[in-house]
Nucleic acid binder design. Structure first.
Lengths: 245, 245
DNA sequence: CGATCCGTTGAGGTGCGTCAACGGGAGTGG
DNA sequence: CCACTCCCGTTGACGCACCTCAACGGATCG
């Protein structure tokens, strides 16, 4: 029995059985936003829900891309590897984000859970059939891909041209903004990922990440709280620091 | 009279006036591929052709995004700036590529011509209207955006984790592959952009780019030919070098 | 024929990587 | 309950890949 079968079984017993997507807390954030009840029902028909432990691989780079995912809780990381093991994390996904876009029917990156996650799983073929039926959904998906492309370009600027300090500040601000968009408070920022993950996301080493946090802490710009939370003392100053001005 | 008016006027005198897009040499590469003659005609109706000199700005970061472009000849660069002038080129666009994707109706980057270019220009509103009518076109656009996203992730791996030498080799191979896809020969590679542009694309300085080219030349891996062409001596070796193995 | 831009090369500096050590927390097993 | 191990984060010492600053030659252009 796979985790997905388990999710399926649990859904059937839930009160939201007839339309689980209608009760989805992150629906407004994602591709499922602005769908009609009828469309939502059709989507729910092909969705399977799963709960995945931290540190599990959803799929690997090069795998046949037959499934799309929607994150409903927890954090997922996407990364690519070089032959000698160097790793670049290309994104952290949070509730409302989707993953599974493919080139030539194969995933271009590996996806692993950072924390325990809840995910909606959609067979690619069935989603594509739905897209043909519901152009609104297609538009929404395209718009989300455009946003991701813009985020990717921001990340290129960060990786290619920012200093370690600017990278760390940009990273914290991104987490803060995304938390706010999901309806959480923007400060303090919850940072669920390890130093190693942060390093591989920002093109640094764990040592440099650690040292930079210490610097910022010493300078009074941030303070670490329990539960992997980071308090940003001066938001405006932080924005300046993220761009070197 | 804008460059675009000029392009419009010239089209009217051309033999392809009734369906210029039908005769487009790069159609097969771009969003216009696989459209029916009728759809192509509708697209041609809203297209304007323009010839732009090298070094011109098409639009700036933050401008209202009311136009989409398709490159039919020449090379365009996209970049973002930090307040102090540091620059990151996020992509080079060549015949068949499109640009103009926006977030919140504003361009997220500046677009400048690297060489003299021919461009097709489409008013965004009219394109969106067409997309609603022709789902095939919408699908095609989405698929192209997905490919760009995958390319962006490759570039993140390059910027975050590769050495200068690996970056240069990866860059040359990318140019080679894209030339091949457009039906040109893959070797030698035509490199139309300046050292400064290459540096800002790879997250390096012009000096490091220059020095690395010299190293590769001395090692016999590449040789510079006239007309901004670079001959790759050993393609397979080049692929290894691009990934550090 | 001066001015400007571009590419190259050299000398020297530095931000971040590498290597190493250490402490604390979590899990494990006796 | 206490060792023991493992993993993670932190800190220090040191090195190096790349940046900075500078000079110079060739090409282009008014």
């Amino acid at each position: 029995m796979t985790p997905f079968d388990m999710g399926r079984a649990r859904d059937k017993g839930a009160t939201t059985e007839m339309n689980p997507c209608g009760a989805c807390p992150v629906r407004i954030l994602t591709v499922c936003a602005a769908l009609e009840p009828e469309e939502l029902r059709r989507l729910a028909d092909i969705a399977q829900n799963a709960r995945i432990e931290a540190g599990q691989t959803l799929f690997g780079e090069g795998d046949a891309a037959d499934t799309l995912y929607n994150v409903t809780s927890g954090t997922v990381k996407l990364f690519k590897l070089l032959p000698d093991g160097r790793r670049q994390i290309t994104g952290f996904l949070m509730p409302g984000d989707f993953l599974g876009l493919a080139v030539n029917d194969h995933y271009a990156y590996t996806a692993e859970t950072v924390t325990t996650c809840s995910l909606c799983r959609f067979p690619r073929r069935k989603v594509e059939a739905l897209l043909d039926e519901f152009p609104k959904m297609q538009r929404r998906l395209f718009s989300m891909a455009s946003n991701e492309l813009a985020a990717a370009q921001d990340q290129m600027l960060l990786l290619g041209r920012k200093t370690a300090r600017e990278k760390i500040c940009s990273f914290l601000l991104m987490l803060s903004q995304r938390a706010a968009r999901r309806g959480h408070k923007e400060n303090p920022v919850y940072v669920p990922m390890s130093r190693a993950d942060i390093a591989d996301y920002l093109g640094l080493t764990t040592e440099t990440v650690s040292r930079t946090f210490t610097q910022l802490k010493t300078a009074g710009v941030i303070s670490l709280q329990e539960g992997n939370k980071i308090q940003i003392a001066d938001m405006d100053g932080m924005y300046d620091m993220a761009e070197g001005s």
